[in-house]
Amino acid sequence: MSAKDEKLTISQVCEELKIKPSTFYDWRAKERAPKCIKLPNGGVRIRRSVLESWLEDREEAA
């Protein structure tokens, strides 16, 4: 599996972005979070490639 296909947990995403899980869930409720994969067991994963694209879309010119 390539790094772009890596599936991250919400905890991993929050740790990487240095945010609290409550912030991520707030963004998700407001449809501002990266696109998520909902697993049959209720778990949620975010593809590494989706997270990277989502971050690039939020970059501002200096």
Rank of each mutant, 00 (worst) to 15 (best):
M1H: 08
S2F: 02
S2M: 08
A3W: 04
K4Y: 15
E6T: 12
L8S: 03
L8A: 00
T9M: 03
I10A: 06
I10D: 03
S11L: 05
S11E: 14
S11N: 12
Q12E: 10
C14K: 02
C14P: 01
E15W: 05
E15N: 15
E15T: 13
E15F: 08
E15M: 12
E15G: 11
E16Q: 09
E16C: 04
E16K: 03
L17K: 07
L17Q: 11
L17N: 01
L17P: 04
K18C: 11
K18G: 02
I19T: 03
K20H: 10
K20A: 12
K20N: 13
P21H: 06
S22L: 09
T23Q: 09
T23G: 06
F24C: 03
F24R: 01
Y25T: 02
Y25D: 08
D26R: 14
W27S: 00
R28G: 02
R28A: 08
A29K: 10
A29G: 10
E31L: 05
R32K: 09
A33I: 01
P34Y: 01
P34I: 00
P34A: 00
K35R: 14
K35I: 07
C36A: 12
I37A: 02
I37F: 09
K38T: 12
K38Y: 07
P40S: 08
P40D: 08
P40V: 09
N41A: 02
N41W: 04
G42M: 03
G43Y: 06
G43F: 08
V44M: 05
I46A: 00
I46C: 01
I46L: 03
I46W: 01
I46K: 00
R47C: 13
R48G: 06
R48A: 07
S49Q: 07
S49V: 14
S49E: 14
S49D: 14
V50Y: 01
L51T: 03
E52A: 04
E52C: 09
S53L: 09
S53D: 10
W54V: 01
W54A: 00
L55S: 07
L55E: 14
L55I: 08
E56K: 06
D57A: 15
D57V: 14
R58S: 10
R58V: 15
E59C: 14
E59A: 09
E60S: 15
A61H: 08
A61C: 15
A61R: 12
A61D: 10
A62L: 06
A62C: 07
